[in-house]
Design a protein around this nucleic acid. Structure first.
Lengths: 245, 245
DNA sequence: CGTTGAGTTGATGGAACTCAAATAGCGTGG
DNA sequence: CCACGCTATTTGAGTTCCATCAACTCAACG
C-alpha cells in the first residue's frame, strides 16, 4: 500500500500554508539560518521517535497518519492522538529533555523533520516564531481538552460520531474534497483512542450506517448526513425519530 | 468557613519557590518592571474568570482550591482540572485571545493575579522567563495527558485511587505535612472530574475505607496504606488477597 | 483453494448509572 | 449547649451500557 501523498517540495506541498516553518520564512531564508528540513518516508508500524529517548526534531506529517502512544498504559489504551497531514507531533517535547510518548506510523507516511536545535535558535531570534509556537502549543492544549471531554463525558455512539466529525473537520481544513474519509488506522487503534473496544466501535459504525448517517466500507467511511451525525454527537437519543422538526 | 492559608507577602509565602514570578526576579526587580501582582480573596463559588471573556491575568493559587470548568459540556462533566496552592491557572490563555474555560473557587481561596501584558513583556526581554514559561506549559500538557489516561483507561476504583494519590503528591510537593488530605471540593466535583457519578465516588471511598487503605470523614481523607493504594491504582484486583507473594 | 488477518455480529455478564431512601455534617437560632 | 433544618454524603435495588468471549464473514494473497 502506498500513502496518498507524493513527495514534493515544500513550495508545491499542499500543506505549505499549514507548515510551521513555512509560515515563518521562505526557503532561502531557512537555508540561511541552517534550518535543514529532512524529509522521511516512514513505513507502516515504524517508530518515528521513542518514549524515553531524547527528541532531536519536531515532526510534521505530510501524508499518512502517525499515532502517538503512551507507554505507561497497562492492559488498556495507549493511543493519545492521531496526527494527520499538516499537523505537528512532539510539540510537548519542547519543555522536557526526553519524550514521554512514542510516535508510530499507522500507515506508510511522509514526514518533515525540523532539527530542534536550529529551531529553538530561530525562536530565540524571531519573536514571530515564538508567537507562532505559543499559538501552536495552545491549540494542542485545546485539542487535548476536547479529546478529554469527548472520552469522559460521552457514550460510545457519541464518541464515535465525535471522532468522525473531528477527523472530517481536520482533513477539510487541509482542503480534503468530499465527505469520504480514509481512516488510516484500524479499529483497534480507534477503539484504543476512544477508550472503547474494537467490537464496540464496529457496532457503532454499523448502527450509524443502518441509520443512513454514514457509509462504511472497511477503512473508507463516507459521511452522508453530517447534520444528523452532529446531533448524535451532541447527545440525541439513539433511535430518536421526530416527525417534523 | 475560612481558607486554610493566611494572607502573607510573597517572601513569607510558603509557595515562594513555586511562585512563577518569584523564580524569575525578586520583588524590587518586579516593581521596576511594573509587574504588579494583585492579591485577591475569592469566596466559594465565585468565578475568577469566565469562558468567552478576555483573560487579562495569569492566576496562581495561594490557598484554597480553584476548579476549571469547560462550558461546552451538556448533561455531563465539566470539571477539567483542580488547582491547588502553588499551582497556576489559565496558562492555556497565552496563545488565545479569550478563555475557553471558567475558573471557579470550590472553597474560599486566595489568589495572586499577574497582569498578562506586563508578563509577556517580561517574557520578551528575559529568555529565562520564556524558558520557564515553556517548562510550565509542557508540565501542564503532561498533566493533561495523565488525566486523560486516568479517565480513559482505568475503572472507577482505580480512578479514585489515582485521584487521591495525585492530590496527595501535589500537596506534598508544597510541604504538606502528613497523609491527611483536605479535599476542598465536594463529591459531585470529584465525580465530574473523574467521569463518574458522585454515588460511585462515594462507594469507592467506602470500599477503600473498608479495606483500611484510607480513612474518610466527610472532606477529610487520610491515606493509611499508600503502597496498597498505589497497587489499586495500578490495577490490582478488587479484593485480591494473596496468601504469600 | 486454503490460509490469514481484519472486521462484524451474537450472547452473556459485570461495572457503573439511575432512582430512591437513609444517614451524617454543619450552621443557625433558640 | 442542644435542637433543628438543610445539604452533602452514603447506602440500597434495579437497570443500562459496554466489555468479554466466541462464532462468523469477507477480502487479500500465496
Amino acid at each position: 500500500m502506498m500513502p496518498e501523498g507524493k513527495r514534493v517540495g515544500c513550495e508545491l506541498c499542499g500543506l505549505w500554508r499549514m507548515c510551521f516553518p513555512g509560515r515563518l520564512a521562505n526557503a532561502s531564508e531557512r537555508m540561511r539560518r541552517g534550518l535543514r528540513i529532512r524529509r522521511m518516508r516512514i513505513p507502516r508500524g515504524m517508530m518515528l521517535y521513542r518514549s524515553g529517548e531524547r527528541v532531536e526534531s519536531l515532526y510534521m506529517v505530510r501524508s499518512g497518519c502517525i499515532k502517538e502512544l503512551d507507554d505507561t498504559g497497562g492492559r488498556h489504551g495507549s493511543v493519545i492522538n492521531f496526527s494527520f497531514p499538516g499537523e505537528m507531533l512532539s510539540l510537548q517535547c519542547l519543555g522536557v529533555p526526553v519524550s514521554t510518548t512514542t510516535g508510530v506510523a499507522v500507515e506508510p507516511s511522509f514526514i518533515c523533520a525540523v532539527p530542534l536545535g536550529a529551531f529553538s535558535q530561530m525562536c530565540a531570534t524571531s519573536s514571530a516564531a515564538t508567537i507562532e509556537l505559543t499559538r501552536l502549543i495552545a491549540k494542542a492544549g485545546a485539542a487535548a481538552r476536547d479529546s478529554l471531554t469527548l472520552i469522559r463525558d460521552k457514550e460510545a455512539h457519541e464518541r464515535v460520531a465525535g471522532f468522525l466529525l473531528n477527523v472530517c473537520g481536520r482533513l477539510q481544513l487541509r482542503g480534503a474534497r468530499g465527505r469520504e474519509l480514509r481512516l488510516g488506522m484500524n479499529r483497534d487503534d480507534i477503539a484504543d483512542y476512544l477508550g472503547l473496544r474494537s467490537e464496540t466501535v464496529s457496532r457503532c459504525f454499523s448502527e450509524l450506517a443502518r441509520r443512513q448517517l454514514i457509509k462504511v466500507r472497511a477503512k473508507r467511511v463516507e459521511i452522508v448526513q453530517i447534520a444528523e451525525l452532529r446531533r448524535v454527537f451532541h447527545g440525541a437519543a439513539h433511535a430518536e425519530r421526530r416527525p417534523a422538526d
